[in-house]
Design a protein around this nucleic acid. Structure first.
Lengths: 148, 148
DNA sequence: TAGCAACAGATAATGACTATTAATTAGTTG
DNA sequence: CAACTAATTAATAGTCATTATCTGTTGCTA
């Protein structure tokens, strides 16, 4: 987590604009995994003049500097995550919520990656691991609904 | 692999149209992982009247019947795979090729899934595992180009 | 084989994202 | 701290993948 994104942006040749800081802060202050449009909607009250294109461009810059991560959980749109630590994600197929899975990280999948490299001959440098299912709430609701 | 998709479609209340069979056969006879548009282009010579929308609709039906799998490798478009066996994928970040990784399947990731369920409280029913890197050819080219 | 629901084909629409352009502004310099 | 300049914003039009609509056609059941 970078305390001073302002300095970090400048050191990398980018201007520290209020819009970029706002996008980063909005993303960093949620434990959800919003889409660009969700961020845009969330920021609109405080930044009524901001354009959706600006949100996309800010996210591009932040992703390029590896301040955020881009998620592609199989929906039509991308999601973003300000937590760049090594972790996986679960998406609830009922309510659509995306949660973090910190127990799945480099440590316990190193041998799997190694096997994949051996099999394919590829040089693997990245990975994305997504799980799908029901979040605790939706799972409970499903059980109750089924009359169990 | 189903020998007779025709019967399978009918048994599930779908009509076995030439277009659907053509889409399935085109997908089953390639070891690549084409997009809808790539399939459309491949089919066009033999089915000049077929529409892109038909390809999408055929893929929808096939996916619903679990005759094919939908891949989302982080590109803007989806890819499709007629091999519904349990496996992962690698995408080469240079040439874009998507290859199978059969060594990563249910067997050797069961404990990881279990950990994820314990941590999140979710009921996990599916997963998608993608690797990114360089395929053997592009890796070799990269090494050569670097003057190594 | 008649008949109808399902389907294909054509095309318009949608939604996520990107390019363009003119006006604005961040951040350096005097 | 005012002026300058290149980067950035806002607005908008455009692109691309995918989906909806609508009409004529066809698979397949009775």
């Amino acid at each position: 987590m970078f305390e001073d994104i302002t300095v970090f942006l400048r050191n990398n040749g980018f201007k520290a604009t209020p819009q970029r800081l706002a996008v980063y802060n909005a993303l960093a202050s949620t434990n959800g995994h919003p889409t660009a449009d969700a961020l845009f909607s969330a920021l609109r009250p405080r930044f009524p003049t901001m354009s959706l294109a600006t949100v996309y461009k800010a996210l591009d810059v932040l992703a390029e500097l590896k301040l955020i991560k881009v998620l592609n959980t199989g929906e039509f749109s991308f999601r973003y995550d300000a937590d760049t630590s090594d972790h996986a994600h679960v998406r609830c197929e009922k309510c659509g919520r995306v949660s973090d899975v910190f127990s799945v990280a480099a440590g316990n999948i190193a041998d799997i990656v190694k096997e994949a490299e051996t099999e394919t001959g590829c040089e693997i440098s990245g990975r994305q691991i997504y799980f799908f299912g029901l979040c605790p709430e939706c799972a409970r609701a499903a059980r109750a609904g089924q009359g169990n």
